[in-house]
């Protein structure tokens, strides 16, 4: 057959993701898309839009707000939700800390990453979500490499790697008991570079912090952390003004910037191709703690 009936790798990945989104919409009563404001969840929203066009995305966007976000990411989140006409639900970790009298993490880089799990589980409970769609990719981390696209969680949100359902062909079994929920990862098979190439191909908009800009930073164990209301320099820190961009957008307290002059998508992609440090290693301060850090967090209901 002629090559007119040929899909390139991005088209194949897109078709697979759209198929997954439609399975979610058909199999679950109350799904939600967990939206962080980062490029992966922005790509998810774009794929969801394509999956259900000309209809609207048939589930809400849910943001678990740690209170430590980049203002640019929040602004973008609000714009995007109204742009696609989706309902936006925001629940704050701050409120969970008060209601449940949780202990705030201390230290110079007080990450609320771990506490996010509490707010997420409360939100699932509050809205009776039976499925949460997330933007995790299997290339990000070793534990994720073994997780299914449809990942069943018990009522504590826990992942049990030894009790995963076999996932055969493109057939997804989303049946669950009451109280359980399923985490679905439509872009499991995409890599960081695939996401960037797709963003370029589809002209997907991103928050400005993904592109090079000047910022006041301190250096912490070889990583650049922005000064903000959440991260203040010590007497021993040298505050530098550097041209930086972000490869991932998480909390201001635990996301590091990379030095860069890349101000366009082409330049960003070129830098990513030439860089020899992986995304999580370069920009997540909290993953370095133990080798099994992500595995532990996933087992406890973190995405």
């Amino acid at each position: 057959m002629s090559s007119q009936y040929h899909l390139d790798y991005l088209e194949q990945l897109e078709a697979e993701s759209i198929h997954i989104f439609r399975e979610v919409a058909a199999q679950f009563e109350k799904p939600a898309l967990l939206f962080s404001g980062g490029k992966d969840s922005i790509t998810l929203v774009h794929l969801a839009k394509k999956a259900f066009a000309p209809g609207k995305i048939p589930f809400p966007l849910v943001h678990i707000d740690t209170g430590h976000n980049f203002p640019e990411a929040l602004e973008f989140r609000d714009w995007l939700a109204s742009e696609v006409g989706a309902t936006l639900i925001v629940r704050k970790v701050e409120d969970t800390i008060k209601q449940r009298s949780l202990t705030e993490p201390k230290g110079k880089f007080p990450s609320r990453n771990w506490l996010q799990t509490y707010t997420l589980l409360d939100t699932i409970e509050e809205f009776k979500f039976d499925c949460c769609i997330g933007g995790a990719r299997r290339d990000e981390e070793k534990a994720r490499a073994k997780e299914r696209i449809f990942s069943v969680r018990d009522e504590f949100g826990q992942w049990n790697p030894k009790l995963q359902r076999p996932e055969l062909w493109n057939i997804y079994n989303g049946r669950i008991h009451k109280g359980e929920n399923v985490r679905v990862f439509p872009i499991s098979n995409w890599t960081e570079l695939d996401i960037w190439n797709y963003i370029r191909k589809e002209y997907i908009g991103l928050p400005s912090i993904y592109f090079a800009h000047e910022r006041k930073v301190i250096e912490h164990e070889g990583q650049l952390v922005a000064i903000s209301e959440f991260v203040q320099p010590d007497a021993s820190d040298v505050v530098l003004t550097k041209k930086v961009r972000y490869r991932t957008v998480g909390d201001m307290t635990c996301t590091a910037a990379v030095e860069s002059n890349a101000s366009t998508l082409d330049e960003v992609i070129n830098e990513i191709i030439s860089t020899r440090i992986s995304e999580r290693g370069e920009t997540r301060i909290d993953d370095k703690v133990t080798e099994a850090a992500m595995e532990d967090r996933k087992k406890n209901g973190y995405f």
Binding site: K146, Q164, T191, E295
Partner: peptide, 20 residues
């Protein structure tokens, strides 16, 4: 991938790897 596997030196489950 998983700690249990590293400890026992075996592979329990299907893992997916990516390269280009």
């Amino acid at each position: 991938g998983l700690r249990a596997e590293r400890e026992q030196g075996i592979t329990i489950d299907v893992a997916y790897r990516y390269f280009t």
